[in-house]
Design a protein around this nucleic acid. Sequence first.
RNA 1: GGCAUCGUGGCCGAGUGGCUAGGCGCAGCUCUGCAAAAGCUUGUACAACGGUUCGAAUCCGUUCGAUGCCUCCA
Length: 493
Amino acid sequence: MQLYEQQKLKVHNSLTGKKELFTSLNSGHIGMYVCGPTVYSNVHLGNCRTFMSFDMIFRYFKHLGYKVRYVRNITDAGHLVDDAEDGEDKIAKKARLEQLEPMEVVQRYTVDFHNILEKFNFLPPSIEPTATGHIIEQIEIIKVIIEKGYAYEINGSVYFDVVKFNETNDYGQLSGRKLEDMIANTRELTAQNDKRSPQDFALWKKAEPQHIMRWPSPWGDGFPGWHLECTAMSTKYLGETFDIHGGGMDLKFPHHECEIAQAEASNGKSPVQYWLHTNMLTLNGKKMAKSTGNSILPDEIFSGNNEVLSKAFSPPMVRFFMMQAHYTSILDISNVALLASEKGFNKLMEAINTLDGLSTAKETKFNVLTWKQSCYDAMNDDFNTPILIAKLFDAVKHINLIKEGKEFINVSDKALLKETIHNFVFEVLGLENKKSSAADTEKLNGTVALLIQLRKAARENKDFATSDSIRDQLVALGIQLKDGKEGTSFSIS
RNA sequence: GGCAUCGUGGCCGAGUGGCUAGGCGCAGCUCUGCAAAAGCUUGUACAACGGUUCGAAUCCGUUCGAUGCCUCCA
């Protein structure tokens, strides 16, 4: 029996606005699509939060025993800077500014993206397709949509006919909007263009002569509209309907709304069972976005080289910080919040280090099985990582009490406790207990053990000046001595 | 202006129609040569105003405020 048959998972479906019991279309298998980045600049921390949330979700599904096909695309074309007629492709614009070949821009920032995610200990998705690699598929979908009468060609561009679509379908079902309201609210004249209605969106854009990124199509040279790539790639790799589609809240409208429209127009089916949207990461109370400049880069946090934070923070620590908030809540990043979180993170890791050396007894003071299920309960409730972490701190408390001899644990419970903590902390949350190489650790352990011995001797001689000097200088180096009943141990901060 | 989400104790951040999440900080205690670490104890918070209810911070309404979307954005 697989874990997923025992653990009933509920997810918040943004299509219905409710928490629903999760059931996959094909038993034991999950198809999940997440909108990836547009690779025209470095990924900032806000982007990372979304992908991290889905990394956690991916990890939990896998932990439950599902076979997951996780598709996360790379947008390397088709994303317009604005929607006006002279709308320029983001990649092309960057390429023009930096005098690079567009694919050079794509390559540079794709590499950066992968580097950063690796530092954060992300699992690679099953498939990471690119928009430019699926031009043919996109053209095919456009043909079908035109055939079905939901799109029209004009001057070498093809637009999706939202008004027509809305006659038979519901445009706005995901974002809670009504087309009539949208039309009523766009009174001001947008730039002159070929659209029949301002709500229509581009499936294919004609490339002006100076436009570098272009592909041939039945409507002339051009490039695909942004929303189309996700429909093309999700359909190709996950089918006409699949289990989960994720992305940031800011993509709900229009991007995801348009995806639903494209899928329904081309194959008559709603493409996704459960829509999951992650909330924004704010910096100084404002949304982090490349376009506004209010953003911080992961590397700036890891190096401490920034103007917002007082010190550097490690990737797993930042990951822990993010996991302490629910993915559907807005999370504001600040120096004090990070600092407070770091102490908690260190405490958790310390306890995990302590766990191995714990001595065992005949009985156990607390119910490990009940505790274990409470961890699952937290995750089963829409991936509630903050609650999970609270549960982990319950275990931390027990570990420390056992260490002090105030509680006890038997051999099998200790093994269960260890397995469960490792599963949730490392496998599900994706945290890492940072340690340098084994050889270096050994040398360090030996060195500190020597100092501990010297200090002990000094203390026995009541030479507290020497003993305190050793202790204080080690603290200054980030090594904390910890005097306990069974001698002195240390931790590295 | 429209739509959406939200407003929780010193800070961060969960959650729920009645049974004090958790982390950080603060204070006290235990331990210690003094500390640190660790443990224990302590916090009657839920934007404002009305309403529903035996009972609401949790449901409804209004107001105020924040953020997001409505144009590119994770």
